[in-house]
C-alpha cells in the first residue's frame, strides 16, 4: 500500500509539466544530430519519453518502478547514433541531467521535487561540465588528462562534502570570528 498525496495543485502540475517538457525538448534536439534516420531517432525519443511519462502515472507500483527505462533506452539509442563532437557530447550530457530533473518530479510525491533535488543534480551536472570542459579545452595528451581527472574527482568530492555537511562552512566562519 503506497501513499497517495491528495493535493495536486495547479502550481504542482505546472512544475511537473516543466520537467517533462524540458526532457522531451532536450531529447528532441538530439535526433537532428543523429547519423541514423532522423525519423527513426525521433520515433525512438517520442516513444521512450511517452512510455516513461505514461508508466509513471500508472497505479501499479511495479510499472512506476520501470518507468525510467523508456527515456533511458531512448537516450542510449541516441548516444550510439550521434557522431562524436563537442556539441553533441555537451547536449547529450545536458539531456541526461534533465532526465535526472524529470526523475525528481515524481507525480506520486510532493511537487517541486526537482528543486529539492538540486544538490544531487548539481553534482551530476558539475561532473558532466567538468568532463566536457576537460575534453574540449585541454590538449589531448596523457599528463594533463590525469591532472584533469584528479582535479575533477577532488572538486566533486569537495562539493559533495559541502552539500552534505553545510555546518562545516559555518564552523569555519565561527572559528574565524573567534
Amino acid at each position: 500500500m503506497g501513499p497517495e498525496d491528495g493535493r495536486v495543485t495547479a502550481r504542482a502540475a505546472w512544475y511537473r509539466g516543466l520537467a517533462s517538457t524540458a526532457l522531451l525538448g532536450a531529447f528532441l534536439i538530439l535526433p537532428a544530430l543523429s547519423v541514423a534516420s532522423e525519423a527513426l531517432a525521433l520515433l525512438l525519443v517520442v516513444v521512450g519519453v511517452a512510455a516513461g511519462a505514461g508508466l509513471r502515472a500508472s497505479a501499479d507500483p511495479w510499472l512506476r518502478g520501470v518507468a525510467p527505462v523508456g527515456p533511458l533506452v531512448a537516450i542510449g539509442g541516441l548516444a550510439v547514433s550521434v557522431p562524436p563532437g563537442a556539441v553533441s557530447e555537451l547536449l547529450l550530457g545536458v539531456a541526461v541531467v534533465l532526465f535526472l530533473v524529470w526523475l525528481a518530479d515524481d507525480p506520486r510525491r510532493l511537487a517541486r521535487g526537482a528543486l529539492r533535488a538540486v544538490p544531487t543534480v548539481a553534482i551530476a551536472g558539475l561532473v558532466t561540465v567538468l568532463a566536457w570542459g576537460s575534453a574540449v579545452v585541454l590538449p589531448p595528451t596523457a599528463a594533463p588528462l590525469g591532472v584533469a581527472a584528479a582535479l575533477l574527482l577532488a572538486v566533486v568530492a569537495l562539493v559533495s562534502l559541502l552539500i552534505a555537511r553545510p555546518e562545516l562552512i559555518a564552523a569555519e566562519e565561527e572559528a574565524a570570528a573567534s
Partner: peptide
C-alpha cells in the same frame, strides 16, 4: 559520446 551520457548517471547515485 556514450561516456558523456553515462557520466551523470554514474555520478548521480554517489551524489
Amino acid at each position: 559520446v556514450p561516456l558523456f551520457a553515462a557520466l551523470p548517471l554514474l555520478a548521480a547515485p554517489l551524489a
